[in-house]
């Protein structure tokens, strides 16, 4: 897979789900989507590793899923609407997932507070050039 440079690669902390991410993350995302069904949720809860064995995941992807490494899942082709199915499964809120992906020491409470204060500021977050 050639990696073509796109202008949106300049946006910091953002994983655009384009064709290249789609191809990387196909099975990871399809696993996540399977959790829409109660019977699959039950099976996954009963034995996570056995359930994952049905999907041709890479070792890295399997590890990221088992460890609930939300940022790593995105890097390995995850799409947030799919990986959030796993967060729902874990009973996580969107704020807890947001805090976990922020890749800092932020807690869920910190993240909620940030939102109440108007959210993460756009200033300084438009371009990788600004953040460096």
């Amino acid at each position: 897979m050639t990696h073509q440079e796109k202008d949106y690669h300049d946006i910091p902390g953002t994983y655009v789900f384009d064709g290249s991410h789609f191809r990387k993350g196909y099975h990871l995302n399809m696993f996540c989507m399977s959790l829409n069904k109660q019977e699959n949720r039950d099976k996954f809860r009963h034995d996570e590793e056995a359930y994952l064995a049905q999907y041709p995941l890479t070792d890295e992807q399997r590890k990221a899923i088992l460890e609930r490494n939300w940022l790593e899942m995105l890097r390995l082709g995850g799409n947030i609407y799919y990986t959030f199915k796993l967060a729902i499964f874990d009973g996580m809120t969107m704020q807890a997932a947001g805090a976990a992906m922020s890749n800092t020491d932020m807690t869920e409470e910190d993240f909620k507070q940030m939102m109440i204060s108007g959210g993460r500021s756009i200033d300084g977050n438009r371009s990788k050039k600004e953040t460096k």
């Binding site: 910091p12 953002t14 959030f84 947001g98 993240f111 108007g118 993460r120 500021s121 756009i122």
Partner: peptide, 17 residues
Amino acid sequence: LSHQLQGERAGLINAEY
């Protein structure tokens, strides 16, 4: 309207825009 659910930039809001 503005929102970002994913990545290190999660929680982004741009109310002015």
